[in-house]
């Protein structure tokens, strides 16, 4: 279970719990701080508050170990190497997911520039999924995808949730929010969140 209590970052003041095997949707107008909140939970920006995984404070472990369990996926993924497979420890482990997300098998050797925006978004998701993290913080993970790919992503994530992973999913798509989330956390301009059951 992920426990967020009294998390403070700029104007954001947030507390909530996230059960194992639960997918919560994060909504709110653009610029309200959804990305800031997700980044703060992953400890990518300096922030205050107690964030725990199964009762264990994140400060008690090295930040890389925390992020391997509580993994943030940016809306616009970054690439530090020139070809696709250099971003994976073992490309073969990624292949089943690559197929599931309707990406070509051969894309491992492709240069990053050859990928479309949608392909990049899905590959970044694969890159995060191979870590088998306990908590996934997904920042608009389907914003650049066509309907078929959106469905593929939703079913892959649903599978992970069924296996016990927790997910916070930020989206502007209300229909998607109702499809994937068991709860909806709505962020307001004051930096707080209120919960509405879907």
């Amino acid at each position: 279970m992920l426990t967020v209590s009294g998390l403070k970052r700029l104007h954001i003041r947030v507390s909530f719990d996230l059960q194992d095997g639960e997918c919560v949707v994060l909504q709110g107008p653009s610029g309200v701080g959804k990305t800031l909140l997700l980044r703060s939970i992953a400890d990518l920006d300096p922030n205050e508050g107690a964030v725990k995984l199964d009762g264990r404070l994140r400060e008690t472990m090295p930040a890389p170990a925390w992020r391997k369990q509580v993994t943030y996926l940016a809306a616009e993924p970054g690439w530090w190497s020139d070809t696709v497979q250099k971003h994976f420890t073992t490309w073969d482990d990624a292949l089943p997911l690559v197929k599931c997300l309707r990406l070509p098998d051969s894309c491992g050797s492709w240069p990053i520039q050859r990928l479309s925006t949608g392909e990049r978004q899905r590959l970044a998701l694969v890159r995060a999924l191979v870590l088998q993290s306990r908590v996934l913080l997904l920042d608009e993970p389907t914003s650049a995808l066509d309907a078929a790919s959106v469905a593929a992503v939703e079913s892959v994530i649903a599978e992970r949730v069924a296996e016990g992973a927790s997910v916070i999913w930020s989206t502007h798509d209300d229909a998607q929010a109702r499809r994937v989330g068991s709860r909806i956390l709505r962020m307001n301009t004051g930096g707080g969140i209120e919960e509405c059951r879907s």
């Binding site: 930040a63 391997k68 940016a74 616009e76 993924p77 690439w79 530090w80 870590l131």
Partner: peptide, 21 residues
Amino acid sequence: ERAAIEACLALGGTRYQAVLP
């Protein structure tokens, strides 16, 4: 290269791995 560095960090890379390039 902020996006690339933070992608590496978010996936559990250390700061040294992330800034190496």
